[in-house]
Design a protein around this nucleic acid. Sequence first.
DNA 1: CGTTAGCACTCGGGACTAGAGAGTGCTAAT
DNA 2: ATTAGCACTCTCTAGTCCCGAGTGCTAACG
Lengths: 347, 347
Amino acid sequence: MTLTERRARLLSLIISEYVDSATPVGSEAMVRRYELPFSSATIRNEMARLEEEGYVSHPHTSAGRVPSDKGYRYYVEALMEERDLPSQTKQTIRHQFHQAGREEDEWVHLAAAVLARAVENAAVVTMPRTAESRLKRVELVSIQDTSALLVVVMQQARVKQQVLIFPEPMEQDQLTAISNHLNQGFAGLSATEISRSQVQLTQLEWHVANAVREVLASTDQGGFDEAAMEGVRTVLQKPEFATSEKMLNLLDVLERRNLPKFIPLAEASGEGVTVMIGAENEQDAMHDYSLVISRYGTPGGIGGAMAVVGPTRMHYPRTISTVRFLSQLMGEMLSTFYDETPPPKDA
Amino acid sequence: MTLTERRARLLSLIISEYVDSATPVGSEAMVRRYELPFSSATIRNEMARLEEEGYVSHPHTSAGRVPSDKGYRYYVEALMEERDLPSQTKQTIRHQFHQAGREEDEWVHLAAAVLARAVENAAVVTMPRTAESRLKRVELVSIQDTSALLVVVMQQARVKQQVLIFPEPMEQDQLTAISNHLNQGFAGLSATEISRSQVQLTQLEWHVANAVREVLASTDQGGFDEAAMEGVRTVLQKPEFATSEKMLNLLDVLERRNLPKFIPLAEASGEGVTVMIGAENEQDAMHDYSLVISRYGTPGGIGGAMAVVGPTRMHYPRTISTVRFLSQLMGEMLSTFYDETPPPKDA
DNA sequence: CGTTAGCACTCGGGACTAGAGAGTGCTAAT
DNA sequence: ATTAGCACTCTCTAGTCCCGAGTGCTAACG
């Protein structure tokens, strides 16, 4: 399954060229552009072999070659040299990134924007979260007689709020009493632990505790709910989307509620960067697109995922390097807030 | 400036027809389709007059007529009969809407989705908020030694949180003391009032108070930050977006950060529904689109705005009725939570 | 006078054709 | 093994033609 040295080199050039030009690449143009020490005829022969073996394909006779999914895959595995990002680029990214404020959703938006710009494709970054949400503190704030605002603070600084209706008018004092009791009983517990708990509760307290449990549970599932996406505009301007039909396709894919289906974050559970090329994604709608996914986060377990979405014709080395760098950077930033260990200040 | 009875009727028909078919409408087809008691020649004469007066236009000789902005305007002002939504539709909307949970952002998302579906265009709904945010309560929750989570609860149940870094390690007790002090001193105040306040503060307290003030201030500006948008897909499928260029245009308009520029919510400050047709919007990018905007909210002042965005060729009566109904419905729902007066249960 | 029939004229768009350009695959020579 | 040469294929663009829908005008009509 390994290619001869020359064919490998040729495949690599075809991919570079095609990533650049978005048009099928022919033998003639190849030798001219790269001053190859062979004639176009030789290149044609080699190309024919590459095609037999499935690394490139032919839109039609008399058109140049286009890399196939298999070709890209081989390129990503064996051919491309993933060199570190130029330190200037790193510096730029780091600089943009440190302008973020202190709110988490600001972070992820900024991260998505920076990533999208750096790789010139669409980028998705999910909010960081823990494996299992645990309650840190409950607050109840009176709104009017029978309604109050429930604020649930979870470990790792996630906050959710909702309006809670009581069957009877409640004073702020009563509410404070309830929240105090719940804080004593449930602090540090997860949703399931709360529902198993044996703490004695009044009916009103139980009402609140139930709402808290639901909040914790709903935080644990999903992950894309509050994800940030950027760069849609950029990617839609690429030549593959000249027809509005293709555009609609991609827009469907990038629809918020479709993301979990199309972007299998589970793949990114381990270390490092995962690449899914075209039909490697089971979803038909993704067959023309590639994903570069990575988890980010602290060693402690708090974290999220980021993904770059674009046509299979994407600049893989740059994209992979950028995703790797940015996920590492996000990890460091999270560490500064949530971990005991001070973050490495330089890289 | 008023049209003859017959010309008015004709304009109305042209608009109905064009809204339906999206193609220029000709005299011949007109008489056939609507069985008019005149010949096509007469209609042609009348159309010529309508064109002279600017109510319709001609893409080119030998094409049918297309309503102009002025034509639509006249139609909206004088011709269309805005009849109430069929009670079945109302019922459907009400039904869909009451499935919302209790979180505000869930409301606005649902409202946007319902609206978009009902009018078959894109819809934007902003989060409800007051004229000036006032502090209700501050909470500080320790995260690790030098960092804590600041939770700012504002009146009308808006909550924001951010991570706060202290120059020295802080115990939860200290944090609680600070928040207690701030709650005593600042509850009920707005951002400007806090900055003018004469309350004596330690350096640490001042640090926190400053952050609180910033949160309040940032909540007061914007309004589109957390707006919900739905129906982009729907509107992009309309025939006017057959070319991908047009699609990109609209996508630009609907970009989150562009919304404030393109959708002048200030216009909707008063009562009722505002319609902006094509070039009535100063922004060039909006010249092919119309807006139907309405404020929603309680009489008390808490509320937001909603807008429908679509091609000028839209079904105005239905859109206007739907926006009116939904804004009223949203107002009622807000009232149930924030107002003293019980909401009218039926309509 | 308002209305209508008739008709010449105008465009846009679809179907068709031709030719240029880029590229391939094969064969025979080096 | 490599290369030059060449016939062949296929897309893309421009050009042409023609149909259909629609207009605007004029002259006739009730």
